[in-house]
C-alpha cells in the first residue's frame, strides 16, 4: 500500500516536474531586440512596449534575458555588425526591425548558421531562414471600404489619401482600397492625393484638391496620420464632414471624440500597433520552446471602433499612437492562424 502510494506520489512529482520543464524550457534562453531607429513616436512606443512586456517575463523566469539594442545611426552596415555581435554575445534569438529588407540578409544568414533564431517584424527581411511578422496592409485598405459599405449601403463618392510615394506600405494599402472599390461598384474614388502620413501635408493636399471635387463626398479613406488634417481641410472649405477613417494617432482620436460628443459622429480607426515588437518576442520564445511556427506570420492591425474609442483615447498619450501589447496567448493565436 505504502509502496503504491509512494509510486503514485512519485508519479505526481514527475508529472509536476515534467510540466515545470515544459514551462521553463526557455528559462536559460536569451532574446535580443535589434532595432535600427528610435527617432519617432512610433519607435519610442515600440521600445517602451518591449520593456513593459519583457521585463516581467524575465522576472518570471520565462526567458533569461530580453535586451533591446538600437544602432546609433540608421545604417545597414551598423545593424549588420550589431547582429554579428549579438550572435557572439550568445543570444539564442534575435528579434529584428531591419534597416533594409535585403541588405541584412548576409548577417541574418550568418546568425541562422550559428543556430540563432531570427524573427523580423515591421521592417522584415527576405532571407528565407528568418521568420517574418508582417502586417496585412492590403486587408487594412479593404476593411476601410467594407466599413464604409456597412455605414453607407447606397455608396457614393470617396476621396483617397495616400501615404509616402514609393514605399511598399503605401502601395499595399492603396491596392486593398482599390480592390474593395472594384468589388463594390456603388463606391467611386473621385480623387487621390498623397498626404505622406502627416497631418499638415494631408491638410494642404486635401485643401488643394477639394475645389475640383463634387460636393457629395461621403467618405475619406486614409492610411493613418492624415485623418485630422483631412477633417480640418473639409472644415476650412465649409463642407459637410464625410466619414473620415482615422489612423490611431492621438490627435485623430481626440478629434473623433470631440465630434462624437458634439453630434454623434461615427467612424473607425486602424493602424499597426507599436506593440507588435512584443508579439515578435513571444513568437521568438515559442520557437525557442521547440514549437512548430510557420515562417510567415500575419499580425492583426489594431482597430478602434465607436465602442472602444474612449478607452483607447485614455491610454494614448498626447502626440502618441494607440498601442496594444501582446501576450503569449495572442502569439499562439497568430501562429495557429498561419498554420491553417
Amino acid at each position: 500500500m505504502t509502496r503504491l502510494a509512494g509510486s503514485i506520489s512519485m508519479l505526481a512529482v514527475m508529472t509536476v516536474l515534467g510540466m515545470g520543464s515544459a514551462l521553463a524550457d526557455t528559462a536559460d534562453k536569451k532574446i535580443a531586440l535589434s532595432n535600427n531607429y528610435a527617432g519617432n513616436s512610433w519607435r519610442q512606443a515600440m521600445l517602451r512596449s518591449w520593456d513593459k512586456v519583457t521585463k516581467p517575463a524575465v522576472t518570471a523566469g520565462i526567458v533569461a534575458a530580453a535586451d533591446p539594442f538600437t544602432t546609433a545611426e540608421n545604417q545597414v552596415t551598423e545593424q549588420a555588425a550589431q547582429i554579428q555581435n549579438l550572435v557572439l554575445q550568445g543570444y539564442n534569438a534575435i528579434v529584428l526591425n531591419a534597416a533594409s529588407p535585403d541588405a541584412l540578409n548576409g548577417a541574418v544568414k550568418e546568425a541562422c548558421d550559428a543556430g540563432v533564431i531570427v524573427v523580423s517584424f515591421d521592417g522584415i527581411v527576405t532571407e528565407p531562414c528568418a521568420w517574418r511578422i508582417a502586417v496585412d496592409f492590403k486587408q487594412m485598405g479593404k476593411d476601410e471600404v467594407l466599413y464604409l459599405k456597412d455605414k453607407l449601403p447606397k455608396g457614393g463618392n470617396i476621396l483617397e489619401i495616400r501615404g509616402l510615394a514609393g514605399v511598399f506600405v503605401d502601395d499595399a494599402i492603396s491596392k486593398g482600397i482599390h480592390e474593395a472599390v472594384a468589388e463594390n461598384p456603388q463606391f467611386k474614388i473621385v480623387g487621390s492625393v498623397h498626404g505622406d502620413w502627416d497631418q499638415a501635408k494631408a491638410q494642404a493636399a486635401v485643401a488643394g484638391i477639394l475645389p475640383s471635387l463634387p460636393n457629395d463626398i461621403v467618405g475619406v479613406v486614409t492610411q493613418g496620420g492624415d485623418g485630422y488634417g483631412a477633417a480640418q481641410a473639409f472644415k476650412a472649405a465649409g463642407r459637410t464632414t464625410p466619414i473620415i477613417i482615422m489612423g490611431n494617432r492621438q490627435d485623430e482620436l481626440a478629434w473623433w471624440k470631440e465630434q462624437k460628443d458634439a453630434n454623434g459622429y461615427e467612424t473607425m480607426s486602424a493602424s499597426i500597433a507599436p506593440g507588435v515588437s512584443t508579439l515578435a518576442f513571444w513568437v521568438a520564445q515559442q520557437i525557442l520552446d521547440g514549437k512548430d511556427v510557420p515562417k510567415d506570420l500575419t499580425v492583426p492591425f489594431l482597430r478602434v471602433d465607436q465602442a472602444t474609442l474612449d478607452k483607447s483615447l485614455e491610454t494614448t498619450e498626447k502626440g502618441g499612437v494607440a498601442n496594444v501589447e501582446y501576450s503569449a496567448e495572442d502569439a499562439q493565436k497568430v501562429v495557429d492562424a498561419a498554420k491553417k
Binding site: 549588420a80 533594409s100 535585403d102 541588405a103 540578409n105 548577417a107
Partner: peptide, 10 residues
C-alpha cells in the same frame, strides 16, 4: 558579397 544585396545608403 557580405550583405548579399545592394542598397544605395549601405
Amino acid at each position: 558579397g557580405l550583405t548579399t544585396s545592394g542598397d544605395a545608403n549601405i
